[in-house]
Simulated assay, not measured.
Amino acid sequence: MSQTPRPQELSIRLMDTHAGGDVSRIVLGGITPLPGDTVRAQMEYLRDDADGLRKLLLEEPYGIPEMSVDLIVPASDARAEAGYIIMEVMGYPIYSGSNTICTATAVLEAGLVPKQEGRQRFMLEAPAGLVQIEALVENGVVEAITCEGLPSYIDTYKASLHVPSIGDVTYSVAYSGGFYALVDATELGFMLVAEEERRLAECAHKIVEAIQAERGFSHYTLGDVGPLPFLHFMGPVEQVADDFYRSRSATYVHPGVICRSTTGTGTSARLALMNHEGRIQPGDKLETVSLRETGFIGEFTGTHQEGTHQVVDNTITGKAFVLAHSDIVVNPDDPMVRDGSVYHILGSPDAPRG
């Protein structure tokens, strides 16, 4: 009979990855099975009853708010190889492109999904539902992941509001897994280079605060999904081929984080706006380029109608890299580990996930 580990022996097994510069910590072991008959229900339990895990891995001394965490959980749909729950500084988004790219790479590298040379397809289950994955494996290396972006649409087009210390700001709002404010970087005086990162975060904070104070947003099926959490700075769009566009971009997550990558959902939001403005056709691609010169490629695959909304179908392609394999020790005597809502879900780091 196994003994319950002493508190100082509690640990969590991690694989740290990044896609486009955004670090995603993949939790592969150390968490007991969560209540809930769907991945969405498991996410809600984690959010409401065990948010200490998110705080533990995104705050000092274990992490920083600019990171994300993806917990591998069993899928509720038999068609999916595994489920995953996304945790960020703003909470629990139901979908994320960069996190999906990292998670898909991690389940291949960890052997939860056996690698197959060439192109292979499988499904994962996010809180948003099933996600089709296509992995490109060359010589045993995962060279690219293409994942479905959530169906995206424009909620608000070219609204204006006054933002203290900035002035009048024109913005659009897209839904692409979360509500995004889309603003023209040039109009705000930005070139979207690395040296502007702090000013971009300060500017975005003020705009998001002003939008949140003025209004809320409701999804056509999900209803109220909380205050607007994202802002995407858009650089000029350059056409580099008949069906290929490129644009510098930066995504802000409230409160206070400029993502290292342009984000997959931010790229999906851009595709929705380009479609709304009649600037893109099915089959066209947009590469968004970050402050760190990394990029994701979004492909506009078509549209369909959902009530009054023309919804854009799309895919996001990127590459993830494995940074580290580790077991972190969680000691409840450590004064830096303040949130006790994590200990009841800690188990064996070797327990299989997915």
Score class of each variant (00 low, 15 high):
Asn275Glu: 11
Gly266Leu: 01
Val193Asp: 03
His254Asp: 13
Arg246Lys: 11
Glu287Cys: 15
His205Lys: 14
Thr265Phe: 01
Ala201Val: 14
Ala210Asn: 07
Gly216Arg: 14
Thr262Leu: 04
Gln281Ile: 07
Arg260Pro: 03
Pro236Leu: 03
Arg198Thr: 14
Gly235Cys: 07
Arg215Cys: 14
Asp242Met: 11
Thr221Phe: 08
Glu277Ser: 11
Arg198Ser: 12
Lys285Pro: 00
Phe190His: 03
Glu197Leu: 05
Met234Asp: 05
His205Met: 12
Ser249Tyr: 08
Lys206Ile: 00
Val289Ala: 04
Thr294Ala: 06
Val237Trp: 02
Gly256Phe: 04
Leu222Ile: 07
Tyr220Thr: 08
Thr265Lys: 06
Ser247Leu: 09
Pro227Tyr: 07
His232Thr: 15
Lys206Met: 15
Tyr252Arg: 00
Glu293Asn: 10
Glu202Val: 12
Glu197Val: 06
His254Val: 10
Ala204Lys: 06
Glu202Trp: 03
Pro227Lys: 07
Met274Tyr: 03
Asp242Val: 00
Arg292Ala: 02
Asp284Ile: 04
Pro255Leu: 03
Leu188Lys: 05
Gly278Val: 13
Ala194Asn: 11
Asp224Cys: 03
Asn275Trp: 05
Ser247His: 00
His205Cys: 10
Glu197Trp: 02
Val225Tyr: 05
Val193Glu: 09
Leu188Ile: 13
Asn275Ile: 02
Thr265Asn: 11
Cys259Pro: 05
Ile280Lys: 01
